[in-house]
């Protein structure tokens, strides 16, 4: 039977996927960038600074989604003790941190021409900074706690506590008065973003997701090799 949790089987799959993503990535990136920078129209109010949104919004989504994944995997690992899940969370965390930071920095660059300030301690921005801190502590625990089973336990607690922050980020713009505008893309109902701008946004999101998948696979592969290497010594 093909066992999905068997590292040997996963390893082969990872190599196939990495090669596949590598083959299509740059073509897609080029298409997405040309739509984001050239073919999409400027906004009626913001002008060309709206283009910053094409990196800011996907980065923020990825930052949030990664943390949700980490939390869910931590919960499943806690319930069913599946070792691979903790390897996965460890591989996802740096990606989430990088994209959360990108979202914060590009948002700040966008804030200057739009709001008139680089920084505001409003609820959305503060909760994003807290998310970055959760990522940092998750990674720091894995780095500095030398006993692995202990590191997994403590970092799982961080991930589960941090899960509470995710809906706070999502709804911060609705619950409190913030400088940050409410979400333009709604899961239900019509989006308040024109299709000529939605298209490059989704394209860019897709490209960045592919990039994340690539990094994740590489990191996961590194983790598997690390484990195998450890087992080798035991032989």
């Amino acid at each position: 039977m093909f066992n999905l949790f068997n590292n040997s089987n996963i390893f082969g799959l990872i190599e196939v996927l990495i090669n596949f993503i590598n083959s299509i990535f740059f073509a897609l990136l080029l298409v997405a960038l040309s739509f984001a920078l050239i073919f999409s129209p400027p906004d009626y109010l913001q002008g060309d600074s709206v283009r910053i949104m094409y990196v800011h919004v996907p980065a923020a989504w990825i930052g949030l989604a990664s943390f949700t994944c980490i939390s869910i995997l931590s919960i499943l690992n806690f319930l069913f003790k599946i070792k691979n899940f903790s390897l996965m969370t460890k591989s996802i965390a740096p990606i989430g941190l990088v994209f959360t930071c990108i979202a914060i920095v590009t948002g700040s660059i966008w804030g200057q021409p739009t709001w008139g300030t680089f920084w505001a301690w409003d609820a959305r921005i503060t909760s994003m900074v807290i998310l970055a801190i959760f990522y940092l502590s998750f990674i720091a625990i894995h780095k500095f706690v030398s006993e692995e089973s202990k590191a997994i336990k403590i970092s799982s607690i961080v991930a589960i506590v941090g899960l509470v922050n995710v809906p706070i980020i999502k709804y911060s713009v609705e619950w409190w008065s913030t400088l940050h505008q409410p979400a333009s893309i709604k899961i239900t109902g019509t989006s308040s973003i024109h299709s000529s701008m939605l298209m490059p946004l989704l394209l860019m999101f897709f490209v960045l997701i592919l990039y994340c998948a690539l990094i994740f696979l590489m990191k996961y592969k590194t983790e598997i090799i690390r484990i195998k290497k450890k087992n080798l010594k035991r032989l």
Binding site: D43, L45, Q46, P182, I193
Partner: peptide, 12 residues
């Protein structure tokens, strides 16, 4: 004074 942007994005 800070400008608060709304959630509408559209071409001119």
């Amino acid at each position: 004074i800070l400008a608060k942007h709304d959630e509408n994005y559209m071409p001119p």
